[in-house]
C-alpha cells in the first residue's frame, strides 16, 4: 500500500493505493495517528488507487470517522471503486461518511463545511 499526502485548497488529501488489508492497516493507522490535529481539520481520503479493502481497513476508517466527529472536523471519502464501495455498503459504512465521486467534489464538500 502507498500513502500520498497532498494539500489542496487548505484540505489535506490522503491518497491510498494498493490493498488496505490486515497486512497494511497498521501502517495506515500509524500514519494517520502521526498527523497533527490542526492538519486534519479538513480531510479527504482518496481511494482511486485502492485495489480492495478488508475489515482491517474499515476499522481505521471508523476510527477516522469517530475522530472527525469528536473534533468537529470535516472528512470526506472519494473515488471508491466498485469493490471498495460494495464492502463499505455491506458493512453499513456509507451513511457514516460523505462520499464523493471525484477528489475535487470531496475537497469542495469539506471546504464548504
Amino acid at each position: 500500500m502507498e500513502i500520498k499526502e497532498d494539500r489542496r485548497d487548505g484540505v489535506l488529501v490522503i491518497a491510498l493505493a494498493g490493498r488496505v488489508d490486515s497486512t497494511t492497516a497498521p501502517t495506515l493507522e500509524a500514519h494517520l495517528g502521526r498527523l497533527e490535529k490542526d492538519s486534519t481539520r479538513r480531510l479527504v481520503v482518496d481511494f482511486s488507487g485502492v485495489e480492495y479493502i478488508s475489515s482491517a481497513g474499515l476499522r481505521i476508517m471508523l476510527i477516522l470517522a469517530k475522530r472527525a466527529r469528536e473534533q468537529q472536523s470535516a472528512l470526506a471519502l472519494c473515488a471508491l471503486g466498485e469493490n471498495v464501495r460494495q464492502v463499505f455498503e455491506l458493512a453499513g459504512f456509507l451513511p457514516l461518511f460523505i462520499v464523493k465521486g471525484s477528489q475535487s467534489a470531496a475537497v469542495a464538500a469539506v471546504t464548504g463545511v
Partner: peptide, 12 residues
C-alpha cells in the same frame, strides 16, 4: 478482489 478481501478476513 472478492477472493482476496475474503482471504484476508479468514487468514487474519
Amino acid at each position: 478482489r472478492r477472493a482476496l478481501t475474503t482471504l484476508d478476513e479468514v487468514l487474519s
